[in-house]
Write a protein that binds this DNA or RNA. Structure first.
Lengths: 209, 209
DNA sequence: GACTTAAAGTGCGAAATGGTACAAAAAGAA
DNA sequence: TTCTTTTTGTACCATTTCGCACTTTAAGTC
């Protein structure tokens, strides 16, 4: 039988949660984002989320499961916002500038220090030893390649790019540029330094302004 | 007084080393390369080098010092081979193809799995929490930018590039491409996949073949 | 052969880490 | 009020980890 939810704040049965799983996951992800998977202890995660270890376990499983949930969420957010930012109703240059401008801002934010992209900053190191993380990372990167390629193909069809433009190659260059920006942000490069990568790529694809 | 070394294999005073520091450092670096700084324990390093923990300590200091030595060595090797590969006597395309071809090969090698670039695979994660690692990483990246930029400026002066070409931007794109290739390799991308990034960049800079 | 030097090897200890068993608490349901 | 349900909180355990004190070994030197 389907339960009817007359009101959204219908309380479940037992003791109420101290913090809802969504924000707990966000906080845990922030902890991983700062220090990486291996260097982030369960005590760190407990302090970051406000949940003690047993509560973390009952909500997310062990440390690796919690990290994988963070990783999948980041991947979903990333591809989602990229899809939205690349919307085809605008000129290619506008879309690309929005993508790389937004990336510059996000990558150079952070309380402790600039953190770059979650995937680049945390999953890349773990990918060699953990096949599941590796697969998730590869899936995300391939997806980003495909999103750029689709948008570039559309631009070429609209006459914004030369008919001979190598769509797949340019798309890979766009993904690599995002990667390079994330790396540079974590290395401490300031906003202008990071943004310069995006501008260089946009100029390369769309021609100098 | 300067000590005269009549023969190169002049033995020092005490018990001979089981393994010379150079190869020990290489082996330790390999261990870090696979699993990253945080996830590589002193026992792992001991097993990898063949030295027990006290010997590691007396030779290199603590774990962080050993890692920093690995990092600095990798940086030196990287900039050194990049300088050599970019030698100006050849056409720009040849030099760039050698750089990115060699990177593809190196990045997709590894016993456990493909390991990419040492800096990207290990230092990027640690850079946020460790200012010393961050500084070393930033120094390496800026140096790579500068090496590419110098070579591109020379090519432009030689008429291989348009006089209007944005040297600094293209150099940053080249560095970002290397970063992206390292990321992709660690994500499990095969040699052709990784090499495609380099080819896309070379075509972009030098024009399609 | 006795002495010195420098490295290897053994073993310990304090702390941190991942994980869990079990009790206490906070809510709704009967 | 009593019972059920679900989460929180406490305490604990086994293992790992980093680091070091101390002994032993292998060489050269006198």
């Amino acid at each position: 039988m389907v339960q009817k939810e007359s009101q959204a704040e219908r309380r479940p049965r037992g003791r109420p949660r101290k913090v809802d799983p969504e924000t707990a996951l966000n906080r845990a992800r922030n902890a991983f984002w700062d220090t990486g998977y291996a260097a982030t202890s369960l005590d760190d995660l407990s302090a970051a989320t406000g949940l003690n270890r047993p509560s973390l376990y009952s909500s997310f499983g062990d440390k690796q499961a919690l990290y994988l949930a963070s990783l999948k969420k980041s991947r979903a957010e990333l591809t989602g916002s990229l899809t939205a930012a690349l919307k085809p109703e605008e000129p290619l240059r506008v879309a690309l500038e929005r993508v790389f401008g937004a990336a510059s801002l996000v990558y150079t934010q952070g309380e402790r220090a600039q953190r770059g992209c979650f995937l680049i900053g945390t999953a890349v190191t773990e990918a060699v030893a953990d096949p599941e993380i590796r697969g998730e990372l590869k899936g995300a990167l391939d997806e980003i390649d495909a999103l750029f390629a689709a948008r570039l193909a559309r631009a070429r069809a609209a006459g914004e790019l030369a008919p001979t433009a190598g769509i797949d190659g340019l798309a890979k260059l766009a993904t690599a540029t995002l990667n390079g920006m994330a790396v540079r942000a974590r290395a401490g490069g300031d906003l202008d330094t990071v943004a310069a990568f995006g501008e260089a790529l946009v100029d390369t694809i769309c021609g100098p302004r």
